[in-house]
Structures are given as C-alpha cells and as structure tokens.
C-alpha cells in the first residue's frame, strides 16, 4: 500500500514539467526515504535524479519499496488536470498495475481521482560517486535560463569557465560568438538574487546547449540554481524542490579529441 499526500501539489506539477522533455519513461521509486527517480535521456548523455523526502509529505505511507514505471507525458497529462492550489495524493495498492492521482481543492469542495496504467520499464541505474567539485556556482535560476536561451541562438555548445574573475558562458556559431561573464555578487537585496562562486581551482568545460536548455524547464521550481563543475566530470545542475528535496541534472561534457 502506497499513499503520499502532498499539500503543495503544484510542486509535483512543476517537477513533471521539468523532466518530461528529457525523459520519456521512468520508474518512480518509493521507499521510507522518499519518492525518487533516476533516469537517463535516450542518448545516455544526460541524467535526471529526483528526490522528494518523505518528511516533505503531509502523509507518507509506503509499506514496502515500490517501483512504478510511468510514461512521463501521461503523468503530465494527469497532473495538468490538478489545480495549482490542489492537494495531490498518490495511491497504489500492492501488486496493482495502476496508480491513482487524487486532487482535492483547498476548501475540499472538489475531489477528483485519475487512475493511470503503470508500465514495465527496464531501468538502468547509475552509481553516481560522491565527488569534490572544483567550482560551485550558485546563481538566480532565471538568469541561468536566460543565458542558456540567449547563447543557443548563436551556437550549439556552451563553454562554462570558472576563474577567480567569475563564471563565463561562451559560445560560437556561424554568425559570430558570445561571452557572458557573471561575477560574484553578494551585495543584493534578497539572498536568492546573489551569485556566489566557490572555486577550488579554475575549470573549463564544454556542454551541449540543447540539454542545458532542457534543464532550465525546472526554473519555476526554485529561484536559484547550483552548477557544480569538475574537469573530466559531468556537470551537475541542481534545483531545490522547496525544502523537501531536489532535481539534479547531470550532463556529460564534450571533450576535445
């Protein structure tokens, strides 16, 4: 028996919008720790890791570990039927091949349930080792989204370089090239507007902008984004999901032959 009640149902709606472009089908795993997902995109270049901790749910019942295969486009179709203020409850019986999404309006005058068929998915789970990152950049998520969008109108790849001067996003294409430098800036009115750069050593890596743009679909989840870089390692682009968890996107770098 599985029953997860999320008062801030809009978080789940935003999570689905954030990942459905990157991944088509995925297994959602439920355990005592929380509700999680790990899935690679079809070309095995990018990975999304989601964790919503059990403490973040108003009610969290998961009698045994359960893996539920879902088509994310179909989940998104279901969740789009929930109002932004609705409370969302996920329910599944042991051994059932369906999951039920229950939507309750805030004043309880409308209750809907949508039952969705589950599917068998052969999932490939990657072991992601703990890593020490050479540079960690925390910046406003809207700013990062704007940079990725702007650069993708010029080129296909972005070089992200962190030095003590700041973080530089560069691209080049047929029509020309572009460089955007963001300096550390902590003298802002609100903490979420700050750009904070923690650098152990300079790092410069190249990534496909198409994937970066896909990650920025998570922007509505959080005012800030954290970008962790190490030479010779995939970048981690992390968005917090309120105080209950995170979405982390991993992207393998392009490396000079």
């Amino acid at each position: 028996m599985l029953e997860l009640r999320l008062v801030q149902g809009s978080l789940l709606k935003k999570v689905l919008e954030a990942i459905k472009e990157l991944v088509t089908d995925a297994n959602f795993d439920c355990s005592a720790t929380g509700f999680s997902l790990q899935a690679m995109d079809s070309s095995h270049v990018a990975l999304v890791a989601l964790l919503l901790r059990s403490e973040g749910f108003e009610h969290y019942r998961c009698d045994r570990n359960l893996s539920m295969g879902m088509n994310l486009n179909n989940v998104s179709k279901m969740l789009r039927c929930a109002g932004n203020d609705d409370i969302i409850t996920l329910k599944a019986d042991d051994g059932s091949d369906t999951v039920t999404f229950m939507f309750e309006s805030p004043n309880q005058d409308k209750i809907a349930d949508f039952e969705m068929k589950l599917m068998d998915i052969d999932s490939e789970h990657l072991g992601i080792p703990e890593a020490e990152y050479h540079a960690i950049v925390k910046m406003p998520s809207a700013e990062f989204a704007r940079i990725c969008k702007d650069l993708s109108s010029i080129g296909d790849t972005v070089v992200i370089s962190v030095t003590k001067e700041g973080v530089k996003f560069s691209t080049r294409g047929d029509i020309g090239n572009a460089n955007i430098v963001c300096r550390q800036n902590t003298t802002v009115d609100k903490p979420e507007e700050a750009t904070i750069i923690e650098m152990q050593e300079p790092v410069s890596l190249t990534f496909a902008l198409r994937y970066m743009n896909s990650f920025t679909k998570a922007t509505p989840l959080s005012n800030t984004v954290t970008i962790s870089l190490s030479s010779e390692l995939p970048v981690v682009v992390e968005y917090k999901v309120a105080d209950m968890g995170y979405i982390r996107f991993y992207l393998a770098p392009k490396i000079e032959d």
Binding site: V45, H125, G127, I128, E256
Partner: peptide, 14 residues
C-alpha cells in the same frame, strides 16, 4: 573537434 561523451563513461551501471 569535440566528442560528446556518454554518462556511462563516468558513472557505472549499478
């Protein structure tokens, strides 16, 4: 030119 690496070059299937 640059080669797009796969995640499996860095992380192993578990």
């Amino acid at each position: 030119s640059e080669t797009q690496h796969l995640l499996t070059n860095f992380f192993h299937l578990s």
